[in-house]
Simulated assay, not measured.
Amino acid sequence: MSSGALEDSVPPRPVAAAETDDGDRFAAHLARSLAPLRVRPLGDGTFHSSVRSAAAGEVQVSVVSGSPCVLTRGPELIDPGDPAFLAVALLREGRAGVTQDGRHCLLGPGDLVNHVTSRPYEVTFWEPYEAVVVTVPVAALGSHADALSGRTAVAVGTDCGPRDVVGVLFEGLAAKVDACTLGAASRSKEYLADAIVSLVIAELVDIAPQSAGDDLADRVLAHCLASLSDPGLTVESVARAHGVSVRYLHKVLAPTGSTLSAWIRRQRLERVCRDLVDESLHGRTAAAIAARWGVTDTEHLSRALKAEFGMTAGEIRRSGRWERGGPRPLHA
């Protein structure tokens, strides 16, 4: 169905929307739109969040955005009597990690991932983010319920191949949430819900489980993102933390075409740049900001920023803006 047809056949209805500056209020809004979750803000800046959602039949579409945070659905929040939902998320901005069923994956802009609400999971957003989340009752998945529910925490790209259709659909649904045109009192919403469920099944049911090496690579990068502020973060410390040798760690990450130390360095410098242009942090020196991200060699800070991004710390701060064109993966 084209977007024009959807607009013609589905009259607008109010959309649940909320913007908050408090983690507890954000959790309350998430409980109404997605599932009960605990929210732990990351960083020491001002916390912002937004949830916009609408429904088409039993399918819920939400656009969630905000400051870096950790969303956790622990066993204490799960009622065995509650209906189970499959949540499929498209990350539009930022970088995130998802953990469920013993697996962990990393997501960048354009990646899809699914998890189920009936089992514990955790989502970490290390930087400002926006995601489109579509929740579907597991009961509506029919014979594919077990297959989809068993392929949680596996990142799926939408930049090529047939899954590009899913990415386009999710982007379109996000626009309809903003335009208040998803819900309706007619049968159109039932057709739309069926179409969404069918497409999710068709494009995600054949996802192959991650290999042990892929999962270790994702866990390593997630560990590094969570530990960037630690000046002691090194390839050796990462290898020890994961019980592997440095040689094996290099082997696991070899397909990326870069080194872990270079990736850590760039991640730190990107966050230094982001904080340098943050108006709420203008009272801090460049050295203090760099130390916040584990960069202790401040004597060479501007030189490193110049080499990586073409501007010194002072030039970045005076510009008042910095765009990196999206987070780069390890192989970039």
Rank of each mutant, 00 (worst) to 15 (best):
G326A: 04
P83R: 10
R240G: 07
L330H: 02
D82F: 04
R268H: 08
T20D: 14
A145M: 13
R324C: 15
G66E: 02
T298W: 00
E171P: 07
A153H: 00
F26G: 01
P68K: 08
A287N: 10
R303D: 15
R247L: 12
L305T: 08
A56V: 10
Q100C: 09
L249K: 05
T298Q: 09
P75G: 03
S280H: 05
G320C: 14
S118T: 07
A96G: 11
R318W: 04
L71I: 08
A286C: 11
L86A: 05
D159H: 12
A287P: 07
A184S: 15
P41N: 13
S9M: 12
V244I: 15
D44C: 12
K251A: 14
E315T: 09
A254N: 11
F309S: 01
S118G: 02
P12D: 06
P109E: 14
L269P: 00
I78E: 03
A287F: 05
L112Q: 04
V205C: 13
C160R: 14
L301C: 12
P327M: 09
G81T: 02
S188N: 12
L225F: 10
F85W: 12
S143V: 14
A155Q: 00
S211W: 06
A262E: 11
D218T: 02
G74C: 07
H29C: 12
R321Y: 10
P162C: 03
G283F: 08
S198N: 13
G142Q: 12
C160Y: 08
G102A: 02
A217D: 06
H144Q: 13
Y121E: 05
D164C: 00
G97Y: 06
H282A: 14
V59G: 04
V238H: 11
A286F: 00
P75R: 13
E236W: 13
A96K: 00
G243R: 11
A174C: 09
D230C: 11
G283K: 02
A239T: 15
H282W: 14
V272A: 08
S245H: 07
G108W: 03
K176Q: 14
G161R: 01
A286S: 13
S67A: 03
R271Y: 01
G43P: 12
T135Q: 09
R119T: 04
V168D: 13
F85N: 06
R303V: 15
A287K: 02
D8M: 11
S53G: 12
V39C: 08
D21G: 15
R284D: 03
A212Y: 09
H242P: 06
I78L: 10
R240H: 15
D8L: 14
G150D: 04
A313T: 11
A332N: 06
S280C: 03
D297W: 00
R119M: 05
E7V: 15
E127L: 11
G294H: 04
I78S: 08
G43K: 12
H242L: 14
